[in-house]
């Protein structure tokens, strides 16, 4: 290292070697040990460093600490829960399916005296009820875009699927993607 580079270092970083560029520190120290000119430059920089060190000390108010800790607590509480912590989603359409399943089980358990007539009638009534329910809730549900296009498709599938009322399938339609 030559004296010019040493001067640049001193003028930029001051007199404290710990602030000098790490990779040049050794060479600068070696030059300082053998050059009176380098020593004079260092002493000159030291005067300014000592003045800078007289800057007012930093004051930390306890109120600030309390306020920041409160922010931290609020932030941590407001963080979204992880996937593993989430409760199972029970969308409206799934609940409708569950209610309907319960209703059909109830219909099947009744001791009908006119079973051959009443049971099919009850099934038809159930279909009508499902249609009515769909008519009432569908616009609102479809607005909930989170359920996606599968909802509308699901309704048509329930209404017209030859395989009948696949309630398990119905329940899965409303699951959030």
């Amino acid at each position: 290292m030559n004296i010019e580079r040493f001067q640049q270092i001193i003028e930029a970083y001051g007199s404290v070697p710990e602030r000098w560029p790490f990779e040049e520190r050794g060479q600068a120290m070696a030059l300082l040990a053998r050059s009176s000119q380098a020593t004079a430059l260092l002493e000159d920089a030291l005067k300014l460093d000592q003045l800078l060190d007289q800057s007012a000390p930093v004051v930390i108010n306890q109120g600030l600490v309390t306020q920041i800790l409160a922010h931290a607590a609020r932030t941590m509480e407001s963080r979204p829960v992880s996937e593993s912590e989430k409760q199972p989603v029970t969308p409206k359409l799934t609940r409708i399916g569950q209610y309907f399943e319960t209703f059909l089980a109830g219909v099947d358990s009744i001791d009908w005296s006119w079973k051959s007539v009443m049971q099919p009638a009850a099934i038809l009534g159930s279909v009508a009820l499902l249609g009515l329910t769909t008519g009432i809730f569908a616009p609102e549900i479809i607005e909930q875009a989170v359920y996606g296009a599968d909802i509308e498709e699901g309704f048509w599938q329930v209404a017209f699927d030859d395989s009948g009322f696949d309630l398990e399938g119905l329940a899965s339609i409303g699951e959030v993607e």
């Binding site: 003028e11 930029a12 970083y13 001051g14």
Partner: peptide, 8 residues
């Protein structure tokens, strides 16, 4: 380094 030198 230029900023530091000018600042000092």
């Amino acid at each position: 380094e230029s900023l530091l030198s000018r600042g000092r």
